[in-house]
Write a protein that binds this DNA or RNA. Sequence first.
RNA 1: UCCAGCGUAGCUCAAUGGGUAGAGCAUCCGGCUGUUAACCGGAGGGUCGCAGGUUCGAGCCCUGCCGCUGGAGCCA
Length: 432
Amino acid sequence: MKTVDITIDKLGYFSGKEVKLRGWIYNRRSSGKIRFILLRDGTGIVQCVFVEGQVPEPAFDLADNIPQESAVAVTGTVREDRRAPGGYELTATDMQVISLAEPYPITPKEHGIEFLMQHRHLWLRSRRQVAILRIRNEIIKGLRDYLDEQGFLCCDTPILTPASVEGTTTLFPVDYYGEQVYLTQSGQLYNEAICAAVRKTYCFGPTFRAEKSKTRRHLTEFWMLEPEMAFYDLNMTMDLMEDLICAIVSRVLNRRREELKILERNIEKLEAVTKPFPRITYAEALEILKKAGMNVQFGDDFGGDEETVISQAFERPVMIHRFPAAIKAFYMKRAPEDNRLALGVDMLAPEGYGEIIGGGQREDDLNELQKRLQEYKLPSEPYQWYLDIRRYGSFPHSGFGLGLERTVAWICGLKHVRETIPFPRLLEKIYP
RNA sequence: UCCAGCGUAGCUCAAUGGGUAGAGCAUCCGGCUGUUAACCGGAGGGUCGCAGGUUCGAGCCCUGCCGCUGGAGCCA
């Protein structure tokens, strides 16, 4: 019989056959004449059983003292076994060392977050972290597949941007041939130009905020998905936000059950995420807060506590629209029924996870927009190209930005966004 | 930037009222034929974050600094 070189995720196709697996030692246990090695290969984890007399002596010895995370090749027979977590085991016939590891700092026991973050490059190898990475990837694919199917064109926007936009205190400066430019905070303004070319577009990439925010939901570098649609009003935009979130939640539920289980995610909470999502106005949100005993006045923005109270009032994501214009960006269109209100919308995830989407309808009237730039004390020169979108065939349009890491944190049920990206960039921390 | 808490073995933590530093895991040695963070026995392992101060005596009290964690503020 020929030994085939396979990966752990394919074990089910090779029951009873002899195979070769290459990977790393995840853990090992010994019980005298029988020794167990947990082998991980990046596609899964399988237990390899070494029985004295049934494997060459060097391999049997190795099974007792090979250091954790050493790279090895194990040959053996695939066996279905109800006792095994994955349903399959490997009865080992031999093992070769590819590379012996030095004593590995991350043991199968508990560690503090500081230690784990300092060893993030190694921490990624753990079962939990791999499960998060798989779900993150599933969410990205789900978002893109959904938008692509709806006729969106992914066009992407620049990461280096000229000075402008609202203030520079939260921007990371970069030297650009002697000129100071900045890392992008959002691709929205560019998307508005692109949607006039292709009707429905989106960008997906990293964005940067030099905020001094030290919370469980802030990164200085995070990934944002930003769709922008020509001829969409606020209601159509809320429909899209709702459909998009339903699409990714059900996709993760269908395709990443195992990973959700590893993360001990409460599946029922995700299964409750179905259409329609509640849509409330800012004024209605204020009522909820007042009933909860919070002192919030019209014109106040919501902090973390307020978001938590509102989102916990519903078991689905909730959309809050028609915010006071004064606390929103200059480009938001005003509500036709009340000029003090902006046609913006935020989506708050359930279970206190806070804002995962922010967006709304854009101001499409040239004169209004110019007036707004003055009110917000913004220079007009850098915005000439942006105003051109209104000069040459202006059209109603809307869009939003979805924060990927917050969405992943919610779907995975994680306390902190730092685990949702392989190498998180946090306030003044950039190692490894 | 502000508030609070924490810095002791490789890791996670303990140490009466100030009196010669302790456990589990990891490592090494030994035992065990079905272990699931295996278990059992033994051994090695310490500049108690750094600097100064009080005291006969400081891991413990005081001052300053550094680092981390949680939160607030800030924030598409």
